[in-house]
Design a protein around this nucleic acid. Sequence first.
DNA 1: GAATTCAGATACATAACTGTATTAGAGTGC
DNA 2: GCACTCTAATACAGTTATGTATCTGAATTC
Lengths: 202, 202
Amino acid sequence: MARKRLTREESRDQTNQRLLEAAAHVIAKKGFAAASVEDIAAHAGYTRGAFYSNFKSKSDLFIALLSQDHQCVQQDLQKILDAPLSMADMQQQISQYYVQVYRDEKNFILWAEARVLALRDAKFRARLNAYCLEKRDDIASIIEQFYKLLGTEPPAPPKDLAFGTMALIDGMRFFNETIPKELPDEAAMRTLAVMFNATFFK
Amino acid sequence: MARKRLTREESRDQTNQRLLEAAAHVIAKKGFAAASVEDIAAHAGYTRGAFYSNFKSKSDLFIALLSQDHQCVQQDLQKILDAPLSMADMQQQISQYYVQVYRDEKNFILWAEARVLALRDAKFRARLNAYCLEKRDDIASIIEQFYKLLGTEPPAPPKDLAFGTMALIDGMRFFNETIPKELPDEAAMRTLAVMFNATFFK
DNA sequence: GAATTCAGATACATAACTGTATTAGAGTGC
DNA sequence: GCACTCTAATACAGTTATGTATCTGAATTC
């Protein structure tokens, strides 16, 4: 099993990526504030030296992490959104969205953490708001497209309805994550479907 | 201005209350993890000694704080919920609920923080879930009452619809709090009204 | 009013984290 | 293969937190 000798750039990228992965893990587990730079570096198999040589600060790293995840998710979602829309799959699209926005529990926790951070930290808030608005606009454009197809007027500005959609999805996901016994997957999905059907097909 | 001489119990209660208020302030400002016991005690005008003589730990204090706020909010909400229901005020009740669940920004942040903590800490989760279910059941019972009045079947189990209601309200509040420019109060309320009307009056 | 008890202050012993400055060692270019 | 340049390790100095153990003074009890 000959290990390839890495060039500087490859090696640096590898370290960078490992630090990001470690950060995702440690932050999801302990929370952003409680996750020390040392923790993260050690979990990636490095020391603090490596950390500071790759990132300016812990915030910096977290933003890089979120940014990477956001790009990744947006790409996946784009596929859903790009598919030509028929009224029948609206509902299916929504549940697909629900499933895909946060790929797994870890990512969900990461973004929940980030949102809370954003309440306090203006720099974070600016970043997250940008991502949030990207998503909102994507969804708003689906909604517009949908009502054009339907030939009727939307019951509220599409952008606001998009916020509503995101709010509902995020909120239900939260309950589903913290009280799965009371709100299992199927119940969450069914309720989402009922509420979205009602508001969009009314 | 003669200051009343306090009995031991009065004095202790006062300290306790001051620590709780200080904690609310400091935790909302810095976050639970970053708020040190020293911070909190100092902000209340005491030293750490006072803190440890009143609470077992920081978690302990936070739970006491949340518990107190929950009781308080539940009382207020009970008044809304106890008012006899007519179909016409359903919508008004909901926007009143929206306004009252978190009395101000500070409380909103506190609960957001708590929810994230709950994702990691089982003890916290148990507490918050209990509060959450109390609210859900209150809302579910309004919904039931409402459909009885209407003489029709609800489109989904009232308890699930209640989760949906809470999810939507919390989620919208979050956007309204972090991107007020994009989702001002009126837009948030109007969208909530549209979505709730659709699902409940469909 | 002396003895006691309890709230809260102070002192202490540790532990952990931060960021920088310096150093070692492995890629790179001539 | 020698000088150089970068990545990551190490050493260091300083800060901030934790919880306990002990002490003090004001309330309480008799």
